[in-house]
């Protein structure tokens, strides 16, 4: 009976210990994370932006940053071989609940392969492989591994899905702390909207703290005006666009009158 009681106490301690330690560390860690700016304006001459994320972490900690957008369903055309020789669009394929944007920024010591979710509880499951596991594809009979790999290629070609290795840099401050810094390059293809910037602080391969911030991208000035006209007064917009094109064509025709003649 006494032996059983001791065993129960040991089991309970072993089970609760990691959770207690994460909680304890989570409270202890002071990160002082800064994100600058948290609002990007898309003006007439906008060509992408830059966001800096920085802060302080314990000297033995690692930092991973994730920039992600809202999830959505994406319907795409699948290319395949017809008659064994011609590459053509053969069917449609839908990727469900995939993030609009997904970019990871890693420190030099962590490669993307560590984030696949295959390392038990050690690393956060935020790599492309883990994203694949969260995604469903219809029709269901598709080769998920292959199609998801093609999906990543397509999104990467637009600059909105990326794994940036060696992107988080550190600088030692004292025996206990170091500072980290990361520049997030925002491509112009990221539409206006609200995105999430998550900073994962890891110690001994485990996430001990996460920090979530909102990054807003908003059209202003001329782009905002044109978008509003195009979506809210579509017919008028179409007519104005046509009239301006007609006017420009006539104007050039008139300007070239002297040289074009009989």
């Amino acid at each position: 009976m006494r032996k059983q009681l001791i065993l129960i106490i040991i089991m309970a301690t072993v089970t609760w210990l990691p959770i207690m330690s994460i909680t304890a560390e989570a409270i202890d860690i002071q990160t002082n994370i800064q994100m600058e700016p948290n609002l990007i304006h898309i003006g007439a001459f906008y060509n992408g932006g830059q966001v800096s994320v920085s802060g302080e972490v314990p000297r033995d900690a690692e930092v991973i940053i994730r920039l992600s957008g809202a999830t959505q369903d994406v319907e795409l055309l699948k290319k395949g071989r017809v008659l064994g020789v011609l590459w053509m669009n053969t069917a449609t394929i839908t990727f469900h609940d995939v993030p609009e944007v997904y970019m990871l920024y890693l420190p030099p010591s962590i490669p993307e392969s560590d984030l696949s979710g295959d390392h038990g509880q050690q690393m956060p499951a935020i790599g492309f492989d883990s994203l694949k596991n969260l995604t469903t594809i219809t029709p269901a009979g598709e080769d998920k591994d292959f199609q998801f790999q093609e999906f990543i290629k397509l999104k990467a070609s637009e600059g909105i899905y990326a794994v940036n290795e060696n992107a988080v840099s550190y600088r030692n401050m004292d025996a206990q702390k170091k500072s980290f810094a990361c520049e997030l390059a925002i491509p112009s293809s990221m539409a206006q909207g609200v995105y999430s910037v998550t900073t994962f602080i890891l110690k001994d391969g485990k996430v001990v703290k996460t920090d979530n911030r909102q990054l807003k991208i908003k059209e202003s000035g001329l782009p905002a005006m044109i978008s509003a006209l195009a979506y809210d007064h579509a017919v008028l917009y179409g007519i104005i666009a046509t009239l301006i094109a007609l006017g420009a064509g006539l104007l050039t025709g008139v300007l070239f009158k002297g040289g074009g003649g009989h």
Binding site: E75, L76, L77, K79, W87, I93, K153, L154
Partner: peptide
């Protein structure tokens, strides 16, 4: 093709 998926 390089990528076997395309937008409509």
């Amino acid at each position: 093709p390089d990528i076997l998926l395309a937008y409509k």
